[in-house]
Amino acid sequence: MRILILFVLSIFISCAQPTTQKAPSVAWQNQLDKVMEVHDEVMPFTAEIVNLNKQLKNFQATHTDLSKEIIVKLEDTQNQLTKAEEGMWDWMHGFVQPSDADDVKKANLYLANEQKKIQAISENMKTSMKAAKQLISELKQK
């Protein structure tokens, strides 16, 4: 009888042991949070990029006596801003959040790759904004 009780007890204990395999959503959630943290930090900058682009466009449109060098610089900076902004829209359009049905390893690999992409987009946005602000400041001084 004692053996039977111990046997039943051991079954309960073994069933109550936590599984080492995490639920998929938990296993990649941290990775997803890191990706979204970068996204949320720089996404509001898109409005500022549009604003800077508009300032440069207006400057070019209202100044007819610009040197070739300045025109090239203006156009390059505008292109850089546009490319940086579009990079964010393209990334969001292509991004697919993993689901619980996905293989955890694959989901983590996918998110690690997305982390690299969003990091690069963040850098592009910040660099292009810095360049545009610098150019605007230079043009104001002239």
């Binding site: 509001p44 900058f45 409005a47 500022e48």
Partner: peptide
């Protein structure tokens, strides 16, 4: 003083 941001707030 900070332009933009409304598109994601």
């Amino acid at each position: 003083t900070a332009p933009g941001g409304f598109n994601h707030d």
